[in-house]
Write a protein that binds this DNA or RNA. Sequence first.
DNA 1: CGCCCGTTTGATAAGTATCAAGTAGCGTGG
DNA 2: CCACGCTACTTGATACTTATCAAACGGGCG
Lengths: 230, 230
Amino acid sequence: MQQTHYPLQPARQASFPAVINGAAPGAGDGLFRRSALNGMRARFARGEVIFVADDPVTSLYEVISGAVRTFRELADGRRQIVAFHLPGEVFGLEPDDAHWLSAEAIGRTTLRVVRRSAIAAEAGRDPAVAAVLQGLAMNGMRQAQVHALLLAKTAEERVGTFLRDLASRSGDDEPMRLPMTRQDIADHLGLTVATVSRMITRLSACAHIQRHASRCIELRDLPALDAMVG
Amino acid sequence: MQQTHYPLQPARQASFPAVINGAAPGAGDGLFRRSALNGMRARFARGEVIFVADDPVTSLYEVISGAVRTFRELADGRRQIVAFHLPGEVFGLEPDDAHWLSAEAIGRTTLRVVRRSAIAAEAGRDPAVAAVLQGLAMNGMRQAQVHALLLAKTAEERVGTFLRDLASRSGDDEPMRLPMTRQDIADHLGLTVATVSRMITRLSACAHIQRHASRCIELRDLPALDAMVG
DNA sequence: CGCCCGTTTGATAAGTATCAAGTAGCGTGG
DNA sequence: CCACGCTACTTGATACTTATCAAACGGGCG
């Protein structure tokens, strides 16, 4: 499959109510800078909790620096990571008044926090803000669908796709620095740490990637990766 | 995991811009009956194509009777079914101007078709319509996330969860009639037909379900199913 | 009534998890 | 600054789950 990456933010093009035109897709341009929604900065240490499932949904969050994981704890103790969020991306949008997901900072992380009530007020006033929200929701839907497609593939394809996508979101600086642990990756891809590690070793052996350090990987043959993962 | 079912329609509660209250959640109440968006009825035969990936997005669709599968064809010929849509549910909402998914009628199916341009116009006029769209997008996001969680589980859990959810969406009449083939189920759950069949046999052996016919299944022990699938 | 497609079942192979040991990287404290 | 210790990562041997290939069965529709 294509596995085109769909960043949550900014809204990529005309969303459904076509009203749009929305926020300029300028890189790094904060979603809520354009309106009255400046938001407050908040800093989090490694592993610190941002919100927990069942908490009331109070805010929307934009990653300024660092990285965030959103996940769901299963009854049997397994943890499924739904998404990683890198600088410039927005998370925290959920259909209900209570969170279904939990969120934690992966490393030292700075966020812009915008209160839900402020967004709601602004969206009622400014149709463009409503359209941006609509785009966020639809991109989140697409991203989750792409993730589901990923989980139907083999371990090698999952890891290859994951690395390729992460690289495209991280900026073009090679080699790429991975903010998350192998356990995080495994919990995102529905694999075990051991298997993730083996697949990275295998991709290195094929010269598709090169490991400079365990958290520092260079994609050496992007076309080959693309061909492998579909 | 909980695997609460999240029907696309109607919007369940206050969505993000809180403007809402939206459409009354009356059962079977068509999404677009309330506004000027009546839409036209369209009938499809078994297997008939509704739209294909790369087609322009022209409309939103509500299932009146029958069932629909939305899916994505992978390069290697595999087909991943993203969702099944039953009467009362809405599909066809996508972030871009071109479809990323394809859609086909599973059996004889009737749809209400509402043109995108009409929706956009109405959403600009009526904030409640915009809010309903927002709810549809966010519920679609949640549904895709739940699906991704499902794909990280064992074959038995996937099939059990699938049957339980389908039953809750199909209405309470037992035994439940399955509109789709085993191949469709397999392509939705990331399994093979043989494995789906074996798991159904195994669930029957545990007396959790009972097969009246291959497409007609009764859930005999819902608590046990819930316990098994988390 | 009979054909055909969808479904079930069996035997075997492949892929991934599990359990366990060894290695390396990194922060912390001496 | 270096040594230490802890955590993350890699690698190996084995078991279990699911896919694959193939055949038999059954039910719905002409």
